[in-house]
């Protein structure tokens, strides 16, 4: 092999390497990167929706400012995930005791057609008294879910329907900034420390 050929060969390898690196960057960090799978919810201050709580009061994201909040989506015709989530949350609230007195805990229905204000009021009454149940119109429900980056979908079953929905629990600080998420997947014992951190942050900010 002549020196000239060696040079050409070396240049080709260098170009190939640079190209591979560029393609890698493009696909991982560059414009070709896939969208992150789960987007973070907006701050509560940037959300806009209006609902009715279990007491008949008009509520919205602004009602949650001033105290840390825990928000999750579900529906009362859900036999498994929703009662489990509500029971888990009731358990965490019991464990945290007095510390949660100032916390907003909100269950938003993704099935307002069946989950009327009365239905929500009855349903939440079986769980921890701090848990509120919010119900809105279909349009407001869609706006709320968009703000939280939550998704839901009506699925037909035998002559009936069920709802697929985001089962995560969203935590916000007193200013309405998104703080943390409790996934349905994760071991439930990780939840209380996450809630405690949000509560501790709220205390630091006020003191």
């Amino acid at each position: 092999m002549s020196r000239r050929n060696l040079f050409t060969y070396g240049a080709a390898v260098t170009v190939a390497l640079a190209l591979a690196l560029f393609i890698g960057w493009w696909r991982v960090d560059g414009p070709g990167a896939p969208e992150p799978v789960a987007q973070r919810p907006l701050p509560l201050t940037q959300m806009e929706f209006q609902m009715t709580d279990q007491g008949g009061e008009t509520v919205g994201p602004a009602s949650l400012l001033g105290n840390p909040s825990m928000v999750f989506f579900g529906f009362t015709y859900c036999p498994d995930v929703c009662p489990t989530t509500l029971s888990d949350i009731s358990g965490w609230l019991d464990d945290l005791g007095e510390a949660v007195a100032e916390m907003n805990v909100v269950f938003i229905t993704v099935d307002p057609e069946r989950d009327t204000v009365d239905a929500m009021a009855e349903y939440v009454s079986y769980f921890h008294p701090a848990i509120q149940g919010w119900s809105g119109t279909l349009e407001e429900t869609a706006r709320a879910a968009e703000g939280f980056r939550a998704s839901y979908e009506k699925v037909a079953t035998d002559g009936d329907y069920t709802m697929n929905h985001t089962a995560s629990v969203f935590l916000f600080d007193a200013e309405g900034q998104f703080a943390s998420i409790i996934d349905y997947h994760e071991p439930r014992e990780f939840a209380a420390p996450k809630i405690r951190r949000v509560l501790a942050r709220a205390e630091e900010e006020t003191s």
Binding site: V37, N164, Y184
Partner: peptide, 18 residues
């Protein structure tokens, strides 16, 4: 009238379906 075994699945985006 209609008892059946169902399963809840939660995907990577945290969406549960049954």
């Amino acid at each position: 009238m209609m008892p059946d075994i169902h399963e809840t699945k939660t995907d990577a985006n945290g969406v549960s379906s049954m």
